[in-house]
Design a protein around this nucleic acid. Sequence first.
DNA 1: AAAATTAATCGTAATATCACGATATAATTA
DNA 2: TAATTATATCGTGATATTACGATTAATTTT
Lengths: 109, 109
Amino acid sequence: MGVTKSHEFGVKENQLAKYAKALAHPARVAILNLLAKRKACICGDIVDELPLSQSTVSQHLKELKEAGLIKGDIEGAKVCYCIDEKEWKAAQVQLNKFFDNLQSGAKCC
Amino acid sequence: MGVTKSHEFGVKENQLAKYAKALAHPARVAILNLLAKRKACICGDIVDELPLSQSTVSQHLKELKEAGLIKGDIEGAKVCYCIDEKEWKAAQVQLNKFFDNLQSGAKCC
DNA sequence: AAAATTAATCGTAATATCACGATATAATTA
DNA sequence: TAATTATATCGTGATATTACGATTAATTTT
């Protein structure tokens, strides 16, 4: 982002932005859909499902993990990724709270 | 994003990613909070509330407008920004559908 | 009409993101 | 043990984002 001023904003705004950022690319949305529907969770299978290289998928998985939305379990040579249900629900609740804040009534313009 | 492959993904994934991207910066979250709570809607007032320059705020407003979440009404020399309630609710519904897709039950890892 | 206010846009610098191939590392199989 | 398989990481190029000051264009005020 180039010299971002994230630190000038509150914890809540940053937390919400962090979740949103994790969802801000269709590949990551697609990955989360696969995990959510348990159609695939082994890294290699996810790679097979997407039109991206192994290294790119690995990078997206890393971002999702850093946002806290998924976790990776090492199973021998393979890695099984799963949605972190607790964080997942926390993200949903936080996003909903944000959207519910819309105050209807007298329009200002 | 450099040579992004968004087009390789479905309309739904891209739509969701578009909304998420709009929320992916704390400044835009802050702006939406101001609009939602009707604390400010005149561009200049929004600028006064944020630790960013006028041109930067204007750029963020443009992105929110392009995502469809807000609209701007010209009022003489000033511009009043408002949340587009229809699109706002559409975004909330779509995000919720996405989060609700999580299938619980037997863990895969 | 001239000066001031308001907001968008332009140009640009710094940094982040996306994507890939190549390589490294670790586990499995032959 | 050697070869194979699975995944992460490194290095890099292309593009996007964030931020700002300066400028522009349009209104409003003086």
